[in-house]
Amino acid sequence: MTFIDPSWGVKSDYVHNLAAKGERADGRGMNDYRKIEVTTDFIPHAPGSALVKMGDTQVIAGISLQAGKPYSDRPNSGVLMTGAELVPLASPEFEAGPPSPKAVEIARVVDRCIRESDSIDMDKLCIEKGEAVWMVMVDMHVLNYAGNIFDAGCLAATAALHNTKMLKFEDGLVIKEKQKTKLPVKKKPVECTFVKVGDAVMLDPSLDEEHALDARITFGMVEKGLCAAQKGGKGSFTQPEIDSAFELAMKKAGELRKHI
């Protein structure tokens, strides 16, 4: 049974009324992020990790490295895999079981953002052409769900990738011992998410704002342009709304990158 907070209706009206006046419940401006904290190497046993706090939202990204067979069409290229888990610990609305469409969407949008930004130098991850390459697994684990997992998750993933140390590969086996060399990561892809509530468009939605949203747009930003985008929600955006959100995302992406 899906959990429904009986007070959503009231909270949502409140968010709508404030938005119409250009205000937000936590006093932020429409284009402000909540306070962001990034702690890298949060899980020292993992090759790479980062904990991101974005307001009350907390996401850990952990990186695992495995050796595996490359895809036949890219025999000397490493492999990237991205997952997201919305574990019941993080919110009364999350359920145990196979990944929900929401979790799948988050994982795939972050995956696209990292992949398409060409951030990881995949060709350097070849161990033996056609036989063995490094597989980089990014797992986002939500600890507390208070809105905007897209941005927090992507920031955690990118921060963790930048902090990842390579493992040793000997006689066909991975030795779980962190090396000095780092994972070859060149860029800092980040995501900026906006939601539309009534006619107002705001950055970095809180939980109540996310429940009240009509539509959502996420931009995956890399240093010089766009590498991913995803619209969600049952409502729509006009072209000018998309244009101005995108302009702002270009600015905000720079701010986010400073945390890495």
Partner: peptide, 14 residues
């Protein structure tokens, strides 16, 4: 003209 689905992947300038 409202946009109800929008995705993007790849590399594009603004």
């Amino acid at each position: 003209g409202e946009i109800v689905l929008l995705q993007m992947d790849g590399d594009l300038s603004p």
